[in-house]
Design a protein around this nucleic acid. Structure first.
Length: 227
DNA sequence: GACCAGGCACATC
DNA sequence: GATGTGCATGGT
């Protein structure tokens, strides 16, 4: 199987969805509990979820550090911050003009719907909250689910590029490959449990970062046994 | 200098 | 409904 980065992967058997719990245990045994998301407060997690869109996390950290230095990592302060200044602070995260706008859109939503209160937001009905988040310009399915899962501890499984890449390689993918189809594969195979969804996605990212990118031939990939 | 990284909106077919 | 494109920095 040839990947987008040009490497030839070993041909895999078809991984079954019913094996996903065991795959998790394998990853967990290799990487240990990941204890995600890296963020001090729910608001920081939400901001990080927008900033990390198609960006390397190391660069997101720089942007967040800038916001902290300016004491701008609170809803009220960030909302008052001029768009240009916000863009300048988050510059290292890339697409800074776009993302500054997206943060502003999110803040408007956050204040209009919940008065800038995480607690009030968390009291919203789960499915309704997801719909509302998806209505915010700049918040797509992955960002919405990241916010729901990692900022608000609600059971929504996050699908990202790593997930699609890794499990496609093991030939486990939905017939249609839209976000919701992918999500269904995992939620149908796993118990609905926030802590599991949380750590499973974190394990996938750990795997994606350390193996499928830097060691694409997978001599020592923890999932090699499933090929 | 090319390629990639924890996406999304929008245009076009 | 699928596919293509713009957005942009910083590391490899």
């Amino acid at each position: 199987m040839k990947s987008s980065n040009g490497f030839i992967y070993p041909k895999s058997r078809v991984l079954k969805a019913s094996e996903l719990p065991r795959v998790y245990r394998t990853l967990r045994a290799k990487f240990g509990s990941q204890d995600w998301w890296p963020g001090d407060t729910p608001f920081e997690v939400m901001v990080g979820a927008i900033l990390t869109q198609n960006a390397a996390w190391i660069n997101v950290e720089k942007a967040i550090r800038n916001l902290k230095t300016e004491r701008a990592l609170t809803p009220r302060v960030m909302q008052k911050l001029p768009l240009k200044k916000l863009a300048r602070l988050i510059r290292p995260a890339g697409y800074f003009n776009v993302k500054a706008g997206r943060l502003k859109h999110f803040l408007s939503f956050f204040f209009e719907e919940y008065g800038g209160s995480i607690k009030r937001m968390a009291r919203e009905d789960d499915a309704m909250l997801r719909e509302k988040l998806l209505g915010v310009k700049g918040v797509g399915p992955e960002t919405a689910d990241s916010i729901l899962l990692y900022a608000l501890n609600k059971p929504f499984f996050v699908i990202d590029t790593y997930t699609k890449r890794i499990f496609s390689r093991h030939r486990l993918h939905p017939w249609k490959k839209q976000y919701g189809d992918w999500q269904g594969v995992f939620t149908r195979a796993l118990p609905i449990k926030t802590s599991l969804y949380n750590d499973y996605h974190a394990q996938i990212v750990a795997l994606g970062k350390h193996f499928c990118k830097t060691r694409p031939q997978c001599e020592d990939c923890p999932l090699r046994q499933y090929l």
